[in-house]
Design a protein around this nucleic acid. Structure first.
Lengths: 157, 157
DNA sequence: TGATCTCCGATCAATTTGGTCGGACTAAGA
DNA sequence: TCTTAGTCCGACCAAATTGATCGGAGATCA
């Protein structure tokens, strides 16, 4: 049902938290450690740690070792898109198996497949959607989604 | 990675096939049986059968019993949206667990959850996208996707 | 009445995902 | 310089989901 994984959920929560501490009014620039986030949001510590490791390996956050260590955003919240976060954890967006098929792999249905092209179009649209929304958008009261359907109105709930 | 299931893939292929036979030039109105579709697209027969059963139970296609039986679209291809097909197989679109949370269920993170609202907005946009594209669009050379981002440019990484 | 088809439920195997454990390395503070 | 709190990293296990299979019941047409 087009679900994003819990790990990606945790990643989003953590990044949002780090961003709000780092750029907030109370303790700007403060480093945030794994335990703090895990307790705040009731996320299993070990699992969150692994998620943060991946995010740091992929260059979204910086890790600082040792006591008083923790994580910082690697760049501004406006420069980190939701697509980057999700793909960082889950790998490239692939709505259907054949969308990133390499040479050698083969899809049994490919021969007469009639849905590949339209599905790829849909995938592309979803990617656009996720890539147009940044961490920054998720925080402030700013408009969240700039991409809109010209024919779709009354969507604000 | 936001993947739709194989079953949903099969459903899309099958419906596309039924539609193209039913409204095609060669044998318009002809009933299509499970075996024909399974062989054409190399889909395991039993699995496809189950998919078609669900589609018919959900009113997307009509089944005709007995020999020379088979399936027909329950309404025109333009009146069947991709969202209807996918939801028929996979259940309601839920990008994140808490999006259709009932009373009684509870999300451990809910208390301080900071990402629920933006995620629901994204989910809504994806739904719009899928619901604006019909089976009919998937077939003809007609424009596939009407929803487009007015402001999305230059974000390609 | 028999062959051919859909219908339906139960079940199994494989993959993915959520979650855990243990040890190595790093840096601040006593 | 030694200790300790923290990150880092890889291997591992368990549960849930998904893909796929099997067997029989009920309809329909020749």
């Amino acid at each position: 049902m087009l679900k994003i994984s819990k790990k990606a959920d945790y990643a989003l929560m953590a990044l949002q938290h780090i961003a709000s501490v780092q750029f907030g009014d109370v303790t700007p620039g403060r480093v945030v450690n794994t335990k703090e986030i895990a307790e705040e949001y009731n996320i299993p510590l070990e699992l969150l740690a692994k998620v943060l490791q991946v995010l740091s390996k992929n260059g979204l956050i910086e890790s600082h070792n040792g006591p008083k260590g923790g994580y910082l955003l690697a760049r501004s919240a406006r420069q980190i898109t939701i697509a980057q976060i999700i793909e960082s954890i889950e790998g490239p967006l692939a709505i259907t198996d054949c969308s990133h098929e390499k040479e050698g792999e083969f899809c049994m249905q490919r021969e007469h497949c009639n849905i590949r092209t339209p599905l790829l179009k849909i995938q592309d649209s979803i990617y656009q959607l996720l890539n147009n929304m940044t961490l920054g958008d998720m925080m402030g009261g700013t408009p969240l989604i700039t991409i809109q359907s010209p024919s779709a109105q009354g969507v604000e709930q």
